[in-house]
């Protein structure tokens, strides 16, 4: 009897391991930070792009929804998502905060002149230090947050048609 228990438990143990391996196979092994959805952003303290001003949590709490978008003039995929940002500008319920990442001011301005300026507010992050505070690890990356600064969704890589639709439905619920 005792032997049987030991044998069954050893078999079950290995069965469990193989099962975990099997499920693990179908999981994506590339990491992203989407599991941070539901966390609250804190200690926001960004420099305004052109004025000698600070952008803080208070500025974001005013709006029902915010999209924080990290972009740069040297970033190719940023150009791909730009049209969607421009379309979001027409939505009322959302405030677009663009954070200019590790960029030269002139290039950034040229970029906005050329492709249009979708942002309600622009901050600058000259050395990229603020990106860490917002959990950004590569650009373009955008975070959709609500009034309480809770992360609703993270968009890693350029915003697509699908993401655009998602944002529009989310903010008009």
């Amino acid at each position: 009897m005792k032997k049987k228990i030991i044998k069954t438990s050893i078999t079950l143990f290995f069965l469990f391991i193989t099962l975990v391996f099997f499920i693990g196979l179908n999981k994506n092994s590339v990491y992203d930070t989407t599991n941070l959805v539901g966390e609250k952003l804190t200690h926001i303290n960004l420099n305004h792009f052109s004025k000698n001003l600070k952008i803080t949590e208070q500025d974001l709490k005013k709006n029902n929804f915010n999209l924080i978008n990290f972009w740069s003039s040297w970033c190719g995929p940023c150009r791909d998502e730009h049209p969607f940002l421009l379309r979001l500008k027409d939505e009322n319920n959302i405030n677009l905060l663009g954070v200019n990442f590790k960029d030269k001011k002139n290039n950034a301005l040229k970029f906005l002149r050329e492709f249009g300026n979708p942002y309600d507010l622009i901050a600058e992050d000259k050395f990229g230090k603020n990106s860490v505070n917002l959990g950004i690890y590569g650009i373009p990356e955008s975070i959709l947050i609500n009034k309480d600064l809770i992360i609703i969704k993270k968009f890693i890589g350029p915003i697509t048609e699908e993401d655009f639709k998602y944002i529009v439905t989310a903010i008009n619920k």
Partner: peptide, 13 residues
Amino acid sequence: SDFAQTIKLVVRD
């Protein structure tokens, strides 16, 4: 990478 450099800056700060 850009990411590693940023992290290094922040950690040093």
